[in-house]
Write a protein that binds this DNA or RNA. Structure first.
Lengths: 124, 124
DNA sequence: CAGGATCCGTAACGATACTG
DNA sequence: CAGTATCGTTACGGATCCTG
């Protein structure tokens, strides 16, 4: 857990940075959380995530698919039907991220209290 | 865009989103990782993180301090000396984020393999 | 229905200069 | 040394239109 054990990690251009960014991005966490529940179609995800544009949802899904976290199953039917689900490794990340998210939520009260203290200490 | 339809936690404007963003941001993770090792001064952090501008480091530290994750100890001396360290709750987040980061790194090979497969499948 | 292509505004970021 | 202030750029995200 010490940084000195992995010095190269502490760099902005570390390759893990990109992956971490993908799974913790604004829409990434929400998509992973939704897929953690069950597979979803494109429009289902759009509705469940809420507030995401088509462009960003498609982009998010593509990067997650490319990283090997999401499986895309496009059925050759009319009208098109595409199902998204988590790969085994994708399920692992999703659970980690979701755990972190839950933890953050459990500490929200502390955070808000800290913010109030911080703000009132500066409000002259 | 009506987000109000979204029933569960899966909402873009969820309050935990902001906090999560702060601790998983580009510089946030690196600052937390550095402070997990030991307290640092401002310029120490700048050197250790590497590639961060003064502006972004200051901003990152302020956000983390406001959320109650980082403690700022400014000593009234000339020249100024400011030490940053993790609060108890800050240490918890830092460990969580650091765990996630290491996990991502342990899966980097899989990710790169998945990317190669994805790219070569489209290169045609 | 699923997504590509395009246009465009904002705000995040970096570099620099300046201050207590 | 530890920041703040200002400015220019970029890239991210949203809205819209279009297609298989």
């Amino acid at each position: 857990m010490t940084v000195s054990e992995a010095p190269n990690v502490n760099r902005a251009d570390c390759p893990s940075r990109g992956v971490l960014e993908h799974v913790t991005s604004r829409w990434g966490v929400l998509v992973l959380a939704a897929l953690l529940d069950r597979p979803h179609r494109f429009s289902e995800l759009r509705r469940e995530v809420g507030g995401v544009s088509e462009k960003m949802l498609a982009q998010t899904l593509q990067t997650l698919e490319r990283d090997g976290f999401v499986d895309r199953d496009a059925k050759p039917v009319i009208p098109p039907r595409v199902d998204y689900s988590l790969t085994p490794v994708g399920r692992e990340v999703a659970e980690q991220v979701w755990t972190l998210t839950r933890w953050v939520e459990s500490k929200l009260d502390d955070v808000f209290a800290a913010r109030s203290a911080y703000d009132s200490a500066r409000a002259v």
